[in-house]
């Protein structure tokens, strides 16, 4: 049975987000799904495994707090989650330290990491797999994913640049992320 996923792990992002309203396990499943991408996002930018883990914890705590305020994703869940991550990164640069407001709100304790965990997180920064996977997307999806997720641009602005409708951009981002998720899971 090794490798068997929890049934929630087989849900799509939107269904998983919906399930978090009544099933706490759904949020744990969301964490499992996006832990590595979010950690990689941070560790590539802050070059510190400790800090990346801290920011990741705050990002997921912020996401949970938002869901409990009924302020979940209006559109793509991954874009919403990475939007929170980007805000945490901006706040880090502005304040000079990683905040812990969401974790305090949820009465979460700091997490101590051992050397093995820190090494594994550092490895994410050196792993080019994510870039390779993104670069392997069809050009329209790649452009949309990079603009929306990595650059955190508004759908409207992206649509104007690409000369397509906002709905088309949303569709490309959604399909690109879905393809990425399948490919990331296939590499594990």
């Amino acid at each position: 049975m090794k490798g068997m996923d929890h049934p929630l792990d087989r849900l799509g992002d939107a269904a998983l987000i919906a399930a978090t309203r009544t099933d706490p396990e759904a949020f744990a499943a969301l964490y499992r799904r996006y832990e590595r991408p979010v950690l990689a996002y941070f560790v590539r930018r802050v070059r510190s495994a400790d800090l990346a883990a801290d920011l990741t914890a705050e990002t997921f705590a912020g996401a949970l707090a938002s869901l409990r305020r009924d302020a979940g994703p209006g559109g793509d869940p991954a874009a919403w989650l990475f939007g929170i991550a980007r805000i945490k990164l901006v706040e880090l640069h502005r304040r000079g330290y990683s905040e812990d407001a969401a974790r305090r709100l949820l009465a979460m304790d700091p997490v101590d990491l051992d050397d093995g965990q820190l090494d594994a997180i550092d490895q994410l920064a050196q792993d080019d797999a994510v870039e390779e996977l993104v670069s392997a997307l069809p050009a329209p999806q790649r452009e949309a994913v990079v603009a929306r997720i990595l650059d955190d641009r508004d759908y409207g602005a992206i649509a104007a640049d690409l000369d397509v409708s906002e709905a088309t951009v949303r569709q490309r981002v959604s399909r690109g992320l879905a393809a990425l998720r399948i490919r990331i899971e296939g590499t594990r």
Binding site: F27, E35, Q117
Partner: peptide, 18 residues
């Protein structure tokens, strides 16, 4: 997960706030 303790804490927080 790379940080199972964080997963556990989030599960606990999610449960408490469901």
């Amino acid at each position: 997960t790379l940080i199972p303790a964080l997963e556990a804490q989030l599960l606990f927080a999610a449960d408490r706030t469901t």
